[in-house]
Structure formats: structure tokens, C-alpha cells
Amino acid sequence: MSDIVTGQDQVRTAHPEQTPEAPATAELPMAKALNAGLRKALADDPKVLLMGEDIGPLGGVFRITEGLQAEFGPKRVIDTPLAESGIIGTAIGLAMRGYRPVVEIQFDGFIFPGFDQITTQLAKLTNRHEGTQAFPVVIRVPYGGHIGAVEHHQESPEAYFAHTPGLRLVSPSTPNDAYWMIQEAIRSNDPVMFFEPKSRYWPKGTVDFRASVAPLHSSRVVRTGTDVTVLGHGAMVSVLLQAAEIAEAEGASLEVVDLRSLSPIDYRPILESVQKTGRLVIASEAPGFASIPSEIAATVAEKAFYSLEAPVLRVTGFDAPFPPAKLETQYLPDADRVLEAVDRALAY
């Protein structure tokens, strides 16, 4: 394995116990794929617990846990008091007791009352125990914009957590990845922050129940191209694919990489792509200052300097608070803004 690969390789997990009559694939929106993945995890391991605000009879405000309390009971699917620090702090205790808590944070902007428990406790406890105790807590965070919601409901806070050693961060962009990655995250013995692009909850995609397409902490080329590599995660991937369509009509060939894992970052596919195209544009909804695109830009400059034909460019949310809903389309990078950067990269 090359030294640039920091992504932890995990064996693909097929499910031989899948009953023969169960369909091998289904067309599902990500919300339902997550629901199916959580159901499978609850069924597979009696130590898996779901906890969060309104996840019981309501099924969560996005209905990701719909029907799960009815199926597994209120001891496995727990409607908690309204306190994020309480939820995460008690999830840590439950993990010490041998459970695998999967916590739902209602919206991105409401994770911060739990920030202390995540960053100063959860992230560090494996290290403080010198590896004698694992903390398999998954924190699910619906995040990102495009839903026209009020303040604190459209943010992308992943960089705060990526900056914290001890946490793993992933974000699926498709229903299939969501189905597999949530189960892999739950099986991880480390704390995993699971960022769900809420604007992608409802478009459907094919879920293959037989095997995942890639390990949890891997990035992946989702469209091949030759001129410019464009990279992003979560909802941004569909924007990049749209940009690639437009670019193709205009004669430019974009290679699209889905980051999938934000910490660790799997650099091999990224560097291979950049070695081919010589140009990289990284997009994300979050503000660009001290961001995941900044981290990747620095690493690519270090590791692929001689392959680059142009500076690595970032297309991000602005360094301003996420604006009122009526301005979100100007704030969030869209295909046009990605293509504007692509043009600049090609101009070198």
C-alpha cells in the first residue's frame, strides 16, 4: 500500500445471510436506504441502540428512523430528552457498557451543545485508555443547504470535527452508499461522525443489498474524464456531476471524485486523478476558510506538485454565516460556480 493512502482499507462486506427471496436491489431514496441500513444494524447486533430527539413515534424529523421503534421497541430506539450534550455524554457511557449507540442530531446547527462531549471526551477516550476501551459511537448529522430552511438548519459543520483527532468522518452521496456506510460506521470501533446530505434524502437511487461498492474510508471516481478533476462530498457530488454534463456539452472533460470519507481522506484516487488531469477543483458547501477543501489542496500541492498544471482551486460557501433561505442559491456553490473555477483552471 502506498504511503499516500491514509484511508483504512476494510474488507467489503457481503451479507451471505441475506435471505434468498429478498430482492437483491431496490430503487430507494437515501432516507429509506438509511432506514434499511439502521434496521439491518439493529437486527444484526443486539448491542446497537438508536438515540435522539423525536426518533421514536415520529421517526425523526426526516423520518430516517420511521417504524424502527415500533419494530425494535423503546429500549433499542430511544426518544431522548432535549439535550445534545446529554445525548452524546450518555452515549459515551453506554459505549463503555458495551453498547453501540447511534445518535441522531436533529439538524447540523444543533450539534454544538454536544460539541464538548464529542471533541474533548468521545474523540480522546480511546487514546486516554491506551486502546483498552473502544468507543463505537456513531453520530448521524443531517447537514447542508438546498432545503430553504431557517437559521441553523442548513449548515455544514464538518471541518470542526475533521480538525479533531480521534474522530472518523464520512458522508455518503448516494442511497447505496448510505445503506452500506451506515452499517460500516456502526461496525467501526472508533467514533464516526456520519454526515447525511439532507437535500439528497429524497431522490432515489439503486441500492444493492448484496455488497458495498467501496470500503468506508475510501474516495471514489464516479465519472471519468481527462481535463479537470472535480472533487466533493455529500450533496456536492450531484452538483459536480451536473457540472460535468454541462462541461461535456461545451467540450471539457471532467473527472468527478466522490470524497466519501472526510477523515481519514483516501488520497490515492485523488492523486491518481490529478496525475492524469493536472487540474483540481474542490467544492464544498461549508465556508472555505480552514476547510476540508483547504486541507486537500495543501496535501495535493505537497504530493502531486509536478503533476499540477494549475493551482488547486476551491469553490465553497462564502465565509459568512449561512444566509437566510432566499439567498441560499447565491451562497451555495452550484454547477455554474464550479464551471467558473474549471474555466480558471483550464486557463493556465
Binding site: F289, F318, D319, A320, P321, P323, P324, L327, Q330, Y331
Partner: peptide
């Protein structure tokens, strides 16, 4: 509102990034 509004009042004094 004008999109420029999102940059106004992020800080109370001029800031180079915004």
C-alpha cells in the same frame, strides 16, 4: 434582499475576507 447583504455585518469593522 440583495445577495450582498449576506456579507454585511458579519463583523462590525471591515474585514478583508468578507
Amino acid at each position: 434582499p440583495d445577495p450582498a447583504l449576506m456579507f454585511d455585518h458579519v463583523y462590525s469593522e471591515p474585514h478583508p475576507v468578507t
